[in-house]
Design a protein around this nucleic acid. Structure first.
Length: 419
DNA sequence: ATTCCACCGGAAGGGGCGGGCC
DNA sequence: GGCCCGCCCCTTCCGGTGGAAT
Protein backbone atom coordinates (compact mmCIF):
# COMPACT_ATOMS: atom_id res chain seq x y z
CA UNK A 1 0.00 0.00 0.00
CA UNK A 2 2.86 2.29 0.69
CA UNK A 3 4.07 1.95 -2.88
CA UNK A 4 0.79 3.27 -4.20
CA UNK A 5 1.20 6.49 -2.32
CA UNK A 6 4.51 7.24 -3.94
CA UNK A 7 3.26 7.26 -7.55
CA UNK A 8 2.86 10.99 -8.04
CA UNK A 9 -0.15 12.19 -10.06
CA UNK A 10 -2.23 9.08 -9.60
CA UNK A 11 -2.61 9.92 -5.95
CA UNK A 12 -4.44 13.11 -6.90
CA UNK A 13 -6.86 11.43 -9.28
CA UNK A 14 -10.45 11.74 -8.13
CA UNK A 15 -11.88 8.66 -6.54
CA UNK A 16 -8.54 7.01 -5.88
CA UNK A 17 -9.53 4.25 -3.47
CA UNK A 18 -6.28 4.37 -1.56
CA UNK A 19 -6.76 8.05 -0.92
CA UNK A 20 -10.15 7.52 0.67
CA UNK A 21 -8.75 4.56 2.57
CA UNK A 22 -6.15 6.79 4.17
CA UNK A 23 -8.65 9.55 4.78
CA UNK A 24 -11.08 7.14 6.43
CA UNK A 25 -8.39 5.62 8.60
CA UNK A 26 -7.37 9.09 9.67
CA UNK A 27 -10.94 10.09 10.46
CA UNK A 28 -11.58 6.95 12.48
CA UNK A 29 -8.41 7.35 14.50
CA UNK A 30 -9.10 11.09 14.91
CA UNK A 31 -12.57 10.41 16.25
CA UNK A 32 -11.08 8.00 18.77
CA UNK A 33 -8.25 10.31 19.68
CA UNK A 34 -8.26 11.10 23.36
CA UNK A 35 -4.74 12.41 23.73
CA UNK A 36 -4.20 16.10 23.03
CA UNK A 37 -0.78 16.51 24.52
CA UNK A 38 0.97 13.17 25.04
CA UNK A 39 4.00 14.71 26.74
CA UNK A 40 1.98 15.21 29.91
CA UNK A 41 1.54 11.46 30.27
CA UNK A 42 5.26 10.83 30.25
CA UNK A 43 7.45 12.77 32.63
CA UNK A 44 10.58 11.83 30.70
CA UNK A 45 9.38 13.74 27.66
CA UNK A 46 8.16 16.79 29.53
CA UNK A 47 10.40 19.81 29.14
CA UNK A 48 11.87 21.08 32.38
CA UNK A 49 9.76 24.24 32.51
CA UNK A 50 6.49 22.40 32.03
CA UNK A 51 7.43 19.84 34.62
CA UNK A 52 7.96 22.55 37.19
CA UNK A 53 4.64 24.11 36.23
CA UNK A 54 2.81 20.80 36.69
CA UNK A 55 4.40 20.34 40.06
CA UNK A 56 3.49 23.85 41.06
CA UNK A 57 -0.08 22.99 40.22
CA UNK A 58 0.09 19.80 42.29
CA UNK A 59 1.33 21.70 45.31
CA UNK A 60 -1.28 24.40 44.76
CA UNK A 61 -3.92 21.74 45.17
CA UNK A 62 -2.71 21.11 48.71
CA UNK A 63 -1.28 17.72 47.98
CA UNK A 64 1.71 16.87 50.18
CA UNK A 65 0.73 19.81 52.36
CA UNK A 66 1.49 18.02 55.61
CA UNK A 67 4.86 16.91 54.34
CA UNK A 68 5.70 20.47 53.28
CA UNK A 69 4.66 21.69 56.72
CA UNK A 70 7.02 19.27 58.39
CA UNK A 71 9.88 20.30 56.12
CA UNK A 72 9.13 23.93 56.88
CA UNK A 73 9.21 23.31 60.62
CA UNK A 74 12.65 21.74 60.33
CA UNK A 75 14.31 24.05 57.86
CA UNK A 76 12.77 27.47 58.45
CA UNK A 77 15.49 28.52 60.95
CA UNK A 78 17.52 29.42 57.85
CA UNK A 79 15.34 32.51 57.47
CA UNK A 80 16.51 33.64 60.90
CA UNK A 81 20.13 33.07 60.00
CA UNK A 82 20.40 29.87 62.03
CA UNK A 83 21.71 26.52 60.85
CA UNK A 84 18.87 23.98 60.70
CA UNK A 85 19.31 20.29 61.58
CA UNK A 86 20.02 17.72 58.91
CA UNK A 87 16.92 15.95 57.68
CA UNK A 88 16.41 12.33 56.74
CA UNK A 89 13.27 11.76 54.67
CA UNK A 90 11.81 8.27 54.47
CA UNK A 91 9.15 7.21 52.03
CA UNK A 92 8.43 4.57 49.41
CA UNK A 93 9.26 5.35 45.78
CA UNK A 94 6.73 7.45 43.90
CA UNK A 95 5.60 9.38 46.95
CA UNK A 96 7.04 12.61 45.66
CA UNK A 97 10.01 12.88 48.01
CA UNK A 98 12.40 14.36 45.48
CA UNK A 99 9.97 16.73 43.81
CA UNK A 100 8.53 17.95 47.09
CA UNK A 101 11.96 18.63 48.52
CA UNK A 102 13.15 20.34 45.34
CA UNK A 103 10.01 22.45 45.30
CA UNK A 104 10.46 23.30 48.95
CA UNK A 105 14.11 24.23 48.59
CA UNK A 106 13.57 26.45 45.57
CA UNK A 107 10.76 28.24 47.40
CA UNK A 108 13.02 28.64 50.40
CA UNK A 109 15.72 30.04 48.15
CA UNK A 110 13.32 32.64 46.78
CA UNK A 111 12.32 33.66 50.31
CA UNK A 112 15.94 33.93 51.39
CA UNK A 113 16.77 36.02 48.36
CA UNK A 114 13.97 38.43 49.25
CA UNK A 115 15.44 38.81 52.71
CA UNK A 116 19.00 39.11 51.53
CA UNK A 117 20.13 35.85 53.08
CA UNK A 118 22.60 33.96 50.88
CA UNK A 119 21.27 30.45 50.34
CA UNK A 120 21.95 27.85 47.66
CA UNK A 121 21.22 24.17 47.27
CA UNK A 122 22.56 21.30 45.17
CA UNK A 123 20.90 18.09 44.14
CA UNK A 124 22.94 14.89 44.21
CA UNK A 125 21.17 12.07 42.42
CA UNK A 126 22.24 8.59 43.48
CA UNK A 127 19.29 6.85 41.82
CA UNK A 128 21.67 4.44 40.15
CA UNK A 129 23.90 2.66 42.68
CA UNK A 130 27.34 4.09 43.19
CA UNK A 131 30.52 3.16 44.93
CA UNK A 132 31.89 5.64 47.41
CA UNK A 133 34.05 7.06 44.66
CA UNK A 134 31.08 7.32 42.32
CA UNK A 135 29.04 9.10 44.99
CA UNK A 136 31.79 11.65 45.58
CA UNK A 137 31.98 12.09 41.85
CA UNK A 138 28.27 12.82 41.64
CA UNK A 139 28.62 15.27 44.50
CA UNK A 140 31.49 17.07 42.78
CA UNK A 141 29.51 17.28 39.55
CA UNK A 142 26.46 18.62 41.36
CA UNK A 143 28.53 21.26 43.10
CA UNK A 144 30.62 22.64 40.28
CA UNK A 145 27.98 22.22 37.62
CA UNK A 146 30.18 20.40 35.13
CA UNK A 147 28.77 17.72 32.91
CA UNK A 148 31.94 15.74 32.55
CA UNK A 149 32.70 13.13 35.19
CA UNK A 150 36.01 13.12 36.91
CA UNK A 151 38.37 10.52 35.61
CA UNK A 152 38.34 7.16 37.29
CA UNK A 153 41.38 6.25 39.32
CA UNK A 154 41.81 9.49 41.21
CA UNK A 155 42.51 8.91 44.90
CA UNK A 156 39.50 9.45 47.16
CA UNK A 157 41.42 12.05 49.16
CA UNK A 158 41.94 14.02 46.01
CA UNK A 159 38.22 13.91 45.17
CA UNK A 160 37.43 15.15 48.65
CA UNK A 161 39.95 17.96 48.30
CA UNK A 162 38.40 19.02 44.99
CA UNK A 163 34.97 19.20 46.57
CA UNK A 164 36.24 21.27 49.48
CA UNK A 165 37.98 23.65 47.08
CA UNK A 166 34.79 24.13 45.08
CA UNK A 167 32.77 24.87 48.19
CA UNK A 168 35.28 27.32 49.53
CA UNK A 169 34.44 29.64 46.67
CA UNK A 170 31.04 30.23 48.27
CA UNK A 171 29.57 31.43 51.52
CA UNK A 172 26.21 31.66 53.27
CA UNK A 173 23.88 28.70 53.72
CA UNK A 174 24.15 25.69 51.55
CA UNK A 175 21.86 22.68 51.42
CA UNK A 176 22.83 19.43 49.75
CA UNK A 177 19.90 17.23 48.80
CA UNK A 178 21.06 13.62 48.50
CA UNK A 179 18.51 11.52 46.66
CA UNK A 180 18.46 7.74 47.33
CA UNK A 181 21.21 8.20 49.88
CA UNK A 182 21.18 4.48 50.66
CA UNK A 183 22.46 3.68 47.19
CA UNK A 184 26.12 3.98 48.07
CA UNK A 185 27.22 0.39 47.72
CA UNK A 186 30.68 0.37 49.27
CA UNK A 187 32.08 2.43 52.11
CA UNK A 188 28.81 4.15 52.92
CA UNK A 189 30.32 5.13 56.23
CA UNK A 190 33.27 6.78 54.54
CA UNK A 191 31.00 8.83 52.29
CA UNK A 192 28.79 9.93 55.16
CA UNK A 193 31.70 10.69 57.45
CA UNK A 194 33.02 12.98 54.78
CA UNK A 195 29.65 14.72 54.47
CA UNK A 196 28.92 14.92 58.17
CA UNK A 197 32.32 15.56 59.67
CA UNK A 198 34.98 16.66 57.23
CA UNK A 199 33.00 19.00 55.00
CA UNK A 200 31.35 21.16 57.68
CA UNK A 201 34.74 21.61 59.29
CA UNK A 202 36.76 22.41 56.18
CA UNK A 203 34.31 24.14 53.89
CA UNK A 204 33.31 27.76 54.16
CA UNK A 205 29.48 27.65 53.67
CA UNK A 206 27.17 26.73 56.53
CA UNK A 207 26.17 23.29 55.38
CA UNK A 208 23.14 21.14 56.04
CA UNK A 209 21.81 18.04 54.34
CA UNK A 210 18.54 16.53 53.29
CA UNK A 211 18.86 12.79 52.72
CA UNK A 212 16.17 10.86 50.89
CA UNK A 213 15.72 7.12 51.10
CA UNK A 214 13.02 4.55 50.62
CA UNK A 215 14.53 2.00 52.95
CA UNK A 216 13.45 2.47 56.52
CA UNK A 217 16.10 0.13 57.80
CA UNK A 218 18.89 2.11 56.16
CA UNK A 219 19.70 3.93 59.38
CA UNK A 220 20.36 0.66 61.16
CA UNK A 221 23.13 -0.25 58.74
CA UNK A 222 25.07 2.90 59.59
CA UNK A 223 27.82 3.41 62.11
CA UNK A 224 26.23 4.89 65.26
CA UNK A 225 29.04 7.42 65.55
CA UNK A 226 28.11 8.91 62.20
CA UNK A 227 24.50 9.11 63.24
CA UNK A 228 25.44 11.07 66.33
CA UNK A 229 27.52 13.51 64.27
CA UNK A 230 24.69 13.94 61.77
CA UNK A 231 22.26 15.20 64.42
CA UNK A 232 19.40 14.58 62.07
CA UNK A 233 15.64 14.87 62.19
CA UNK A 234 13.52 12.15 60.61
CA UNK A 235 10.56 12.89 58.37
CA UNK A 236 8.16 10.37 56.90
CA UNK A 237 6.49 10.70 53.53
CA UNK A 238 3.34 8.64 53.50
CA UNK A 239 2.24 7.12 50.21
CA UNK A 240 -0.37 9.11 48.33
CA UNK A 241 -3.89 8.11 49.30
CA UNK A 242 -6.63 7.57 46.76
CA UNK A 243 -7.87 11.17 47.07
CA UNK A 244 -4.42 12.61 46.36
CA UNK A 245 -4.03 10.32 43.39
CA UNK A 246 -7.42 11.36 42.00
CA UNK A 247 -6.25 14.99 42.13
CA UNK A 248 -2.94 14.19 40.49
CA UNK A 249 -4.64 12.18 37.78
CA UNK A 250 -7.28 14.85 37.16
CA UNK A 251 -4.51 17.35 36.60
CA UNK A 252 -2.89 15.06 34.04
CA UNK A 253 -6.22 14.45 32.36
CA UNK A 254 -6.82 18.20 32.08
CA UNK A 255 -3.39 18.80 30.60
CA UNK A 256 -3.03 15.79 28.34
CA UNK A 257 -6.43 14.53 27.33
CA UNK A 258 -9.77 15.43 25.84
CA UNK A 259 -11.73 15.57 29.08
CA UNK A 260 -15.06 14.88 27.42
CA UNK A 261 -13.89 11.37 26.53
CA UNK A 262 -12.69 10.46 29.98
CA UNK A 263 -15.12 9.07 32.52
CA UNK A 264 -14.73 10.14 36.12
CA UNK A 265 -15.17 6.53 37.22
CA UNK A 266 -12.13 5.50 35.23
CA UNK A 267 -9.92 8.06 36.94
CA UNK A 268 -11.18 6.96 40.33
CA UNK A 269 -10.54 3.36 39.46
CA UNK A 270 -6.94 4.06 38.47
CA UNK A 271 -6.42 5.93 41.73
CA UNK A 272 -7.92 3.01 43.63
CA UNK A 273 -5.67 0.50 41.90
CA UNK A 274 -2.57 2.56 42.50
CA UNK A 275 -3.32 3.40 46.11
CA UNK A 276 -4.22 -0.16 46.92
CA UNK A 277 -0.93 -1.32 45.57
CA UNK A 278 1.75 1.15 46.66
CA UNK A 279 0.39 4.67 46.37
CA UNK A 280 2.97 5.36 43.72
CA UNK A 281 2.04 8.36 41.58
CA UNK A 282 4.34 7.36 38.73
CA UNK A 283 2.62 4.00 38.54
CA UNK A 284 -0.76 5.70 38.50
CA UNK A 285 0.23 7.93 35.58
CA UNK A 286 1.71 4.93 33.80
CA UNK A 287 -1.57 3.06 34.22
CA UNK A 288 -3.46 6.09 32.92
CA UNK A 289 -1.25 6.25 29.83
CA UNK A 290 -1.74 2.56 29.13
CA UNK A 291 -5.51 2.79 29.56
CA UNK A 292 -5.64 5.76 27.19
CA UNK A 293 -3.69 3.82 24.59
CA UNK A 294 -6.07 0.89 24.86
CA UNK A 295 -9.07 3.20 24.66
CA UNK A 296 -7.73 4.84 21.50
CA UNK A 297 -7.26 1.45 19.89
CA UNK A 298 -10.71 0.36 20.98
CA UNK A 299 -13.85 2.20 21.95
CA UNK A 300 -12.48 5.73 21.86
CA UNK A 301 -13.63 6.42 25.40
CA UNK A 302 -11.73 5.94 28.61
CA UNK A 303 -14.02 3.99 30.92
CA UNK A 304 -13.52 1.50 33.72
CA UNK A 305 -13.27 -1.44 31.33
CA UNK A 306 -10.19 0.10 29.70
CA UNK A 307 -8.60 0.56 33.11
CA UNK A 308 -9.11 -3.09 33.95
CA UNK A 309 -7.62 -4.15 30.66
CA UNK A 310 -4.67 -1.81 31.12
CA UNK A 311 -4.00 -3.09 34.60
CA UNK A 312 -3.94 -6.65 33.33
CA UNK A 313 -1.78 -5.76 30.37
CA UNK A 314 0.73 -3.92 32.56
CA UNK A 315 0.86 -6.95 34.82
CA UNK A 316 1.76 -9.15 31.83
CA UNK A 317 4.32 -6.61 30.60
CA UNK A 318 5.94 -6.68 34.01
CA UNK A 319 6.39 -10.46 34.09
CA UNK A 320 7.71 -10.48 30.53
CA UNK A 321 10.10 -7.68 31.43
CA UNK A 322 11.24 -9.69 34.42
CA UNK A 323 11.81 -12.75 32.24
CA UNK A 324 13.76 -10.72 29.70
CA UNK A 325 15.99 -9.36 32.43
CA UNK A 326 16.93 -12.83 33.70
CA UNK A 327 20.43 -14.16 33.12
CA UNK A 328 20.85 -16.53 30.20
CA UNK A 329 21.06 -19.65 32.37
CA UNK A 330 18.04 -18.61 34.38
CA UNK A 331 16.03 -18.14 31.22
CA UNK A 332 17.08 -21.58 30.04
CA UNK A 333 16.06 -23.07 33.38
CA UNK A 334 12.69 -21.36 33.16
CA UNK A 335 12.20 -22.57 29.59
CA UNK A 336 13.16 -26.06 30.66
CA UNK A 337 10.56 -25.98 33.42
CA UNK A 338 7.76 -24.96 31.09
CA UNK A 339 8.89 -27.43 28.44
CA UNK A 340 8.73 -30.07 31.13
CA UNK A 341 5.27 -28.92 32.21
CA UNK A 342 4.07 -29.23 28.63
CA UNK A 343 5.56 -32.72 28.25
CA UNK A 344 4.50 -34.09 31.61
CA UNK A 345 1.19 -32.40 32.22
CA UNK A 346 2.06 -29.96 34.97
CA UNK A 347 4.00 -31.60 37.80
CA UNK A 348 7.76 -31.80 37.56
CA UNK A 349 10.51 -32.88 39.96
CA UNK A 350 13.97 -31.33 40.17
CA UNK A 351 15.57 -34.31 38.49
CA UNK A 352 13.12 -34.24 35.59
CA UNK A 353 13.54 -30.51 35.14
CA UNK A 354 17.30 -30.85 35.20
CA UNK A 355 17.10 -33.55 32.54
CA UNK A 356 15.04 -31.30 30.27
CA UNK A 357 17.41 -28.44 30.99
CA UNK A 358 20.46 -30.54 30.16
CA UNK A 359 18.91 -31.60 26.85
CA UNK A 360 18.05 -28.00 26.09
CA UNK A 361 21.62 -26.96 26.76
CA UNK A 362 22.96 -29.70 24.52
CA UNK A 363 20.61 -28.64 21.74
CA UNK A 364 21.78 -25.04 22.01
CA UNK A 365 25.44 -25.89 22.46
CA UNK A 366 25.74 -24.25 25.89
CA UNK A 367 27.39 -25.96 28.81
CA UNK A 368 24.98 -26.95 31.56
CA UNK A 369 25.53 -25.93 35.16
CA UNK A 370 25.62 -28.44 37.99
CA UNK A 371 22.44 -29.81 39.50
CA UNK A 372 23.27 -28.10 42.76
CA UNK A 373 23.26 -24.70 41.07
CA UNK A 374 20.19 -25.63 39.08
CA UNK A 375 18.39 -26.39 42.30
CA UNK A 376 19.25 -22.94 43.64
CA UNK A 377 18.01 -21.46 40.41
CA UNK A 378 14.67 -23.17 40.79
CA UNK A 379 14.47 -21.66 44.26
CA UNK A 380 15.11 -18.27 42.72
CA UNK A 381 12.44 -18.74 40.06
CA UNK A 382 9.99 -19.72 42.78
CA UNK A 383 10.91 -16.63 44.79
CA UNK A 384 10.05 -14.43 41.83
CA UNK A 385 6.80 -16.27 41.24
CA UNK A 386 7.79 -17.57 37.82
CA UNK A 387 7.13 -21.16 38.90
CA UNK A 388 5.55 -22.70 41.98
CA UNK A 389 7.93 -24.98 43.84
CA UNK A 390 7.38 -26.86 47.09
CA UNK A 391 9.57 -29.47 48.71
CA UNK A 392 7.66 -32.70 49.17
CA UNK A 393 8.59 -36.22 50.18
CA UNK A 394 7.60 -39.15 48.03
CA UNK A 395 8.58 -41.60 50.71
CA UNK A 396 10.70 -44.38 49.43
CA UNK A 397 10.98 -42.55 46.13
CA UNK A 398 12.85 -39.74 47.71
CA UNK A 399 12.39 -36.11 48.54
CA UNK A 400 12.18 -33.52 45.82
CA UNK A 401 10.91 -30.10 44.90
CA UNK A 402 7.72 -30.44 43.00
CA UNK A 403 7.08 -27.66 40.56
CA UNK A 404 3.98 -26.44 38.82
CA UNK A 405 3.43 -23.56 36.41
CA UNK A 406 2.46 -20.14 37.69
CA UNK A 407 2.78 -17.91 34.63
CA UNK A 408 -0.31 -16.82 32.73
CA UNK A 409 -0.74 -19.10 29.72
CA UNK A 410 -0.06 -16.34 27.15
CA UNK A 411 3.28 -15.57 28.73
CA UNK A 412 4.18 -19.25 29.03
CA UNK A 413 3.43 -20.02 25.40
CA UNK A 414 5.41 -16.98 24.25
CA UNK A 415 8.29 -18.19 26.43
CA UNK A 416 8.27 -21.58 24.72
CA UNK A 417 8.21 -20.04 21.26
CA UNK A 418 11.50 -18.23 21.85
CA UNK A 419 14.30 -19.65 19.69
C1' DA B 1 11.43 -50.38 63.59
C1' DT B 2 14.33 -50.00 59.90
C1' DT B 3 15.72 -49.09 55.33
C1' DC B 4 16.31 -46.40 51.53
C1' DC B 5 15.37 -43.13 47.82
C1' DA B 6 16.34 -38.71 45.56
C1' DC B 7 17.14 -34.75 46.47
C1' DC B 8 18.00 -30.59 49.90
C1' DG B 9 21.06 -27.18 51.45
C1' DG B 10 25.35 -25.83 54.09
C1' DA B 11 30.37 -25.45 53.61
C1' DA B 12 34.56 -24.95 51.35
C1' DG B 13 37.43 -23.85 47.70
C1' DG B 14 38.58 -22.25 42.94
C1' DG B 15 38.40 -19.04 39.12
C1' DG B 16 37.10 -14.84 36.74
C1' DC B 17 36.09 -10.08 36.80
C1' DG B 18 35.53 -5.39 37.91
C1' DG B 19 36.42 -1.53 40.95
C1' DG B 20 39.86 1.06 43.61
C1' DC B 21 44.24 2.73 43.71
C1' DC B 22 48.69 4.32 42.03
C1' DG C 1 46.90 2.56 31.72
C1' DG C 2 47.87 -1.35 34.58
C1' DC C 3 48.02 -4.00 38.88
C1' DC C 4 45.87 -6.08 42.88
C1' DC C 5 42.33 -7.37 45.94
C1' DG C 6 37.77 -8.57 47.18
C1' DC C 7 33.48 -10.24 45.64
C1' DC C 8 30.53 -13.16 43.22
C1' DC C 9 29.47 -17.23 40.75
C1' DC C 10 30.12 -21.94 40.31
C1' DT C 11 31.43 -26.69 41.49
C1' DT C 12 32.26 -30.48 44.52
C1' DC C 13 31.49 -32.81 48.66
C1' DC C 14 28.64 -34.50 52.08
C1' DG C 15 25.58 -34.93 56.03
C1' DG C 16 20.60 -34.52 56.52
C1' DT C 17 15.64 -35.64 55.74
C1' DG C 18 10.40 -37.30 55.45
C1' DG C 19 7.75 -40.92 54.73
C1' DA C 20 6.60 -45.21 51.67
C1' DA C 21 8.18 -49.75 51.53
C1' DT C 22 9.65 -53.66 53.84
Amino acid sequence: MVQKMSCGNAAFAAGNPTESLIRDAFLVSASKRITINPAFLDDEKLPEGERVAVLQEVFNRNIRLRQLERLARCLSPVLGGMLPPNVLVYGPSGTGKSVTCLHFLSTLRALCEARGIPFTFSYVDLTTPHTCFGALNELAIALDGRVRRYRKGIALDHMEETIIQTLNGRDGFMCVLVDEADNVTTDTDLFLTFLAKTLPKKAAPKLFYVFLTNRVEWEKTLDPRILSVLKKTDLIFEPYDAMDLVEILRLRVEKALDGSKVEEGAVRKIAAFASRETGDARKAVELLAKAVKLAEEGSGRLAEAEVDAAERSLELDKTEELIRSLARQQQLALQACYLGFAQRRGRLSTGDAFQVYADLCKAQGTTAISQRRFSDMLNFLDLYGLVNATVISKGRFGKTREMSPSLPSEVASRLLKQE
